[in-house]
């Protein structure tokens, strides 16, 4: 009896046999780029464990191009370590893209960026995820004009009734990557760097950045840190308060610098509000704030509200160079 039970258990085990995949039989994709050009989908895959080779595949549909990419160089493509994807703005208009990618990959935590440029020009120079990751980190800390937007963020924004996904854009100039604002692909609307930055600030997605200020034909570097945005909405009054520290190596002109920075910031936030209201789609957390409190025609309230922008920057005691 015992033997029968043991044999039965072993047989059961074999019935559920799942084909395994050895590590060395996998082509690990760390970076992927997608483009739609001349009615063809183009997929670019960087295989990290094959000397960072960039593979290019073409197909009439997303399904076809990914099917072709199932095996690369006799190795099964493995997307679970995918960390950066670059989309051309042309493919972002494809409404099925997000759904397709959501279904295709179990890993949805990869950073997504877009570009208006010819994607091949960028890929000629940069096709490793680490290059993009270090660029985003540096640009975020220095200018605050780009943030890490993951595919998961895009999906959750899309699921939200009143939010629209904002994808950061990049461009290449003189073989160097630069941030290029943002793209509301569901509205086909481009935002410039300043409006994107205002959006990130209001969403508390950036807490520090630096900028150059021009006074009497001279440029001064200024650092803003510990930034925090507080939104209040009461009795049809919308108050956006941005608090933080300001610091510049040129302490003599700090007051003047501060004035300019505050004025720039106010302009940026105003522009951002105008775009948001114009498109009637939220890409910040203001509308969510109102929506969650009021739950009734939030854009009407947002539009009609009396808006007050308060920028409260304090001089930082310690220099950024310390």
């Amino acid at each position: 009896m015992k033997k029968i039970i043991i044999t039965g258990i072993i047989l059961l085990l074999f019935l559920g046999y799942a084909p395994y995949q050895e590590l060395n039989d996998l082509a690990v994709v760390d970076f992927m780029a997608l483009d739609f050009k001349d009615n063809k989908y183009k997929l670019y895959l960087n295989i990290i464990n094959m000397d960072n080779t960039l593979y290019e595949l073409e197909g009439d549909s997303l399904g076809e191009v990914f099917f072709k990419a199932k095996n690369v160089n006799n190795k099964k493509t493995y997307y679970n370590h995918l960390s950066v994807t670059l989309f051309s703005t042309s493919i972002l208009k494809d409404k099925e893209l997000l759904t397709f990618l959501k279904d295709e990959f179990t890993n949805i935590d990869y950073v997504t960026i877009g570009t208006k440029d010819n994607i091949e020009d960028i890929l000629d120079k940069f096709h490793q995820s680490s290059e993009y990751e270090s660029f985003i980190t540096k640009e975020k800390e220095d200018l605050g004009s780009i943030i890490n937007v993951t595919f998961k963020d895009l999906l959750s924004d899309r699921m939200d009734d009143i939010k629209t996904p904002l994808i950061p854009l990049i461009t290449i100039k003189d073989d160097v990557l630069h941030s290029n604002g943002g793209y509301l692909f569901s509205k086909d609307t481009y935002l410039d760097n300043n409006i994107s930055k205002a959006s990130y600030l209001i969403s508390n997605k950036i807490t520090s950045y630096s900028q150059k200020v021009e006074i009497d034909d001279k440029y001064y570097e200024v650092f803003l840190s510990n930034l925090k945005t507080i939104i209040n909405y009461k009795d049809n009054n919308l108050k956006i308060t941005i608090k933080g520290d300001i610091n510049s190596p040129d302490t003599d002109n700090l007051e003047k610098i501060k004035e300019i920075v505050i004025s720039d910031l106010k302009n940026d936030v105003n522009s951002f509000i105008l775009v948001e209201l114009d498109k009637y789609k939220s890409f910040s957390n203001i509308i969510n704030y109102i929506y969650l409190k009021e739950k009734d025609k939030p854009f009407d309230k947002y539009k009609d509200a009396k808006k007050e922008i308060v920028i409260d920057l304090k001089k930082k005691e310690k220099s950024n160079y310390d």
């Binding site: 799942a18 395994y20 995949q21 050895e22 590590l23 060395n24 996998l26 690990v28 760390d30 990290i48 464990n49 493995y78 679970n80 370590h81 960390s83 179990t106 890993n107």
Partner: peptide
């Protein structure tokens, strides 16, 4: 190394893969 490769951090993944 044969079923749950996604748990492995990428540097370890690549290290193991190159050894095999």
């Amino acid at each position: 190394t044969t079923h749950n490769q996604d748990i492995l951090p990428l540097p370890i993944f690549l290290n193991f893969a190159s050894q095999r």
